[in-house]
């Protein structure tokens, strides 16, 4: 008993230390030697999510536009470790950088670091992160707008009438905001009825949604019983599409959100998956660089939140 407890502890220590090793921050990208005199401006980007393709893209775009301004941009990734993230923010404060950018990640989980920045008078900006103490401004996509636009597309695609099923995941605040806005949009169409809101489990959302769709097709066996399926993100939309195709049902329109590559491929096939919407991370990065440049020249932003509209992806 004692032995196995000691082994359990040992193994846990091992796991934790392994996780710690992988979280070693990569070296900050070297300052551009050829940069002009303004290179004295240093912006530190800290992120817990560089492993995520979307985050990586957004941050790389930010780096690109920042360097165009002649800034020295450093990027630090903590591999989902928020405790390390606080330390890295504190490091940036010690180095007296001109601005700190949070590359995604909820500011509520790093208040200690943010307070240090605030005390040192270093402005913090959120790149699709969130608002919190010391965060001057957060730039993000409006999840509500993403939900509303895809719902609008679906409603128009089914001619403004019929039964709609929604695939949701309410514990996720972003997906929940999408679903609420979509439901509000469907409510604008008196002849559209949302017959079911189905909670999609993660991980494994594709298979889960596929099985759920298969069962719903059984519950609504006739063509025309279901006009459309709205999914809060692309994975469940893919599962729904596959179930509809496997069952040979026609006349059901599926929409997703995020504009992932597999969704684009599916939409290009011209099957049930008709549309998705992509967040404009390039636009976000570009505008954030402009906002920071203005801020450093003394122009305070009018609001603490800027929302960038999404880009609809359709077969056309």
């Amino acid at each position: 008993m004692n032995h196995s407890f000691v082994r359990l502890l040992l193994a846990l220590v091992l796991i934790v230390s392994l996780a710690g090793c992988t979280a070693v921050a990569p070296a900050p990208s070297a300052g551009d030697a050829a940069a002009p005199a303004e290179a004295s401006i240093t912006v530190a980007v800290v992120t817990p999510y560089m492993a995520n393709a979307t985050t990586k893209y957004a941050i790389e775009q930010f780096e690109k536009y920042g360097k165009e301004q002649g800034w020295n941009v450093t990027v630090t990734d903590t591999n989902a470790d928020f405790n390390q993230l606080v330390s890295r923010i504190e490091d940036a404060v010690t180095q007296q950088v001109d601005a700190i950018v949070l590359g995604m990640g909820d500011p509520a989980q790093m208040t200690k670091g943010l307070e240090a920045a605030q005390a040192a008078g270093i402005p913090v900006f959120g790149l699709d992160a969130g608002n919190g103490p010391g965060v001057v401004l957060n730039i993000t996509s409006d999840n509500g707008q993403l939900g509303k636009e895809t719902a609008h597309f679906l409603a128009e695609a089914i001619g403004g009438k019929g039964n709609v099923i929604m695939f949701t995941h309410d514990p996720h605040p972003g997906v929940r905001a999408r679903a609420e806005a979509a439901a509000a949009e469907f409510a604008n169409y008196p002849e559209i009825t949302v017959i079911e809101k189905k909670h999609i489990e993660v991980p494994g959302p594709v298979d889960f949604a596929r099985n759920a769709t298969q069962d719903l097709l059984t519950a609504y066996p006739n063509d025309g019983d279901i006009a459309g399926i709205w999914a809060g993100w692309d994975e469940p939309a893919l599962g729904a599409t596959q179930a509809i195709e496997a069952a040979g049902r026609s006349g059901i329109v599926v929409v997703g959100i995020d504009g992932t590559d597999f969704a684009r491929a599916e939409i290009a096939k011209g099957g049930p998956f008709a549309a998705s919407i992509a967040q404009d991370f390039d636009g976000m990065a570009k505008q954030l660089v402009e906002i920071i440049a203005a801020y450093l020249k003394g122009e305070k932003p009018a609001s603490d939140s800027v929302q960038i509209p999404g880009v609809l992806v359709t077969g056309e």
């Binding site: 489990e201 991980p203 494994g204 594709v206 298979d207 994975e235 893919l238």
Partner: peptide, 13 residues
Amino acid sequence: SRLFSAHPTAGEP
């Protein structure tokens, strides 16, 4: 094969 795509966490459930 069923999903005709490989998701890195698909098998976890």
